[in-house]
C-alpha cells in the first residue's frame, strides 16, 4: 500500500514534466510576438526589443527551457508581465474564493446527488425516478452562465433574498460568506448534480439486483439499511470515480461562474490573464490545475481500497 502510494507519486513526475513542456512551448508556439503584444499598440521598436531581452526571449529555446524549469523547481512561477508581481503571490491572493466555491459545490453535490440517485434507483420507474432523470437531462442542457443570470435575476433582483454579486471571505463572518456563496454554489452544482445523480442511480440499480441484497432482505433487514449498508457501499466505486472526473469539469465551470458572480478567484485571474496574454500567469495556473487534477486522481484510486476490500494495490 505505502509502496503503491510512493510509486503513484513517482509516476506523477513524468506527467508533470510533459505538462510543463507543453506549458513552456505554448508561449513560444502561439501566433504573434509576445514582446510586441505585451508592449502594446503604441510601443516603439526599442520598447519591444527591451521587453524581449527582459523576458530572455533572445536566448536559444533550450536555454530558456532549462532556466524556466530551474526556477520552477524552486517554486518560482515567474513575474506577471502587467502587474510586475510574482505569479505565486497573485495565485495566493486568489486561492481562497476558488477553494471555498469548489468545496461548497462538491459538498452540496454529494449531499444532494447521492441520496437523489439512490432514491431514483430504489423507486426506479416511479414519478420520483422520472423527475430525477428529467432534472438530470435539464441540468446537462442549461449552460452555466444562462443559469447564473436567471438565478441572479429571480432570486437577487426580483425577490431580493441574496446579494447580486461579490464574495465575502469566511474569515470575515460566516453569515455574509454563506449569503454570497449560495448562488454561485447552486449554479455550479446543477450540472455536477445531474452527472453524479445519474451515475448513482445507474450504479445502485445494478447493485440492487445483486444476490447479497436479496440476502439482506432475507435476513429481515429494513429497506433503509439495505440501501445504506449493503447497496450504497457496493455502488460507491463508480460514484466516486465520476465525482473525481466532475472536479475536472468544475475547473471550467469555476471560470464562468466567477465571472458571472464577480468573484475574485482563480477563474477570474485566468480570464484576465488570457485577455491580456499575461503568459506567466497562464502557465502557472495550468501547472497548478494539472497538479491538483493528478492529486485528485490519486486520492480517488486510494479511496477504492476503502470502499472495496477486494481492491489491493
Amino acid at each position: 500500500m505505502i509502496g503503491y502510494i510512493f510509486r503513484r507519486i513517482l509516476a506523477t513526475v513524468p506527467v508533470m514534466g510533459v505538462v510543463a513542456l507543453f506549458v513552456f512551448l505554448m508561449l513560444r508556439l502561439s501566433p504573434g510576438d509576445p514582446a510586441a503584444v505585451i508592449a502594446g499598440d503604441y510601443a516603439t521598436a526599442e520598447d519591444i526589443i527591451r521587453i524581449r531581452e527582459q523576458l530572455g526571449l533572445n536566448e536559444p529555446i533550450v536555454v530558456q527551457f532549462v532556466t524556466w524549469i530551474g526556477s520552477l523547481l524552486q517554486g518560482d512561477l515567474g513575474i506577471s508581465i502587467f502587474t510586475n508581481l510574482p505569479v505565486t503571490t497573485l495565485i495566493g491572493q486568489r486561492l481562497e474564493p476558488t477553494i471555498s466555491l469548489t468545496l461548497t459545490t462538491i459538498i452540496f453535490t454529494v449531499v444532494v446527488a447521492v441520496p437523489l440517485g439512490t432514491l431514483a434507483a430504489w423507486k426506479s420507474g416511479s414519478l420520483i425516478d422520472r423527475f430525477v432523470m428529467l432534472f438530470s437531462v435539464g441540468g446537462f442542457s442549461v449552460p452555466v452562465f444562462v443559469l447564473g443570470y436567471i438565478m441572479i435575476y429571480v432570486i437577487s433582483m426580483e425577490l431580493r433574498w441574496l446579494p447580486v454579486q461579490g464574495y465575502k471571505s469566511i474569515f470575515d463572518g460566516v453569515w455574509p460568506f454563506v449569503r454570497h456563496i449560495i448562488l454561485p454554489t447552486l449554479t455550479l452544482s446543477v450540472i455536477f448534480i445531474a452527472l453524479v445523480s445519474r451515475m448513482t442511480r445507474a450504479s445502485v440499480m445494478e447493485v440492487l439486483q445483486e444476490d447479497y441484497v436479496r440476502t439482506a432482505r432475507a435476513k429481515g433487514q429494513s429497506e433503509l439499511k439495505v440501501l445504506l449498508r449493503h447497496a450504497l457501499r457496493n455502488a460507491a466505486v463508480p460514484i466516486v470515480t465520476v465525482i473525481g472526473l466532475g472536479i475536472a469539469l468544475l475547473i471550467g465551470g469555476v471560470v464562468v461562474t466567477e465571472s458571472v458572480y464577480n468573484i475574485p478567484g482563480l477563474g477570474r485571474l485566468v480570464l484576465d490573464a488570457i485577455l491580456k496574454r499575461d503568459y506567466p500567469i497562464i502557465q502557472g495556473l495550468i501547472l497548478l490545475f494539472s497538479f491538483v487534477y493528478i492529486l485528485i486522481n490519486l486520492l480517488i484510486d486510494l479511496s477504492y481500497c476503502f470502499f472495496d476490500p477486494r481492491i489491493r494495490y
Binding site: E210, Y212, R214, A216, A218, G220, S222, R229, R310
Partner: peptide
C-alpha cells in the same frame, strides 16, 4: 410483519455463496 419473521423464524440460504454475501462486509 414479514420482515420481523424473516431471519428470526424462517431463514434462507442460496445457490451462489460468493454472490449471496456482501463482498465489502
Amino acid at each position: 410483519q414479514l420482515r420481523a419473521l424473516r431471519g428470526e423464524r424462517m431463514a434462507m440460504i442460496f445457490q451462489e455463496p460468493m454472490t449471496a454475501l456482501n463482498p465489502v462486509m
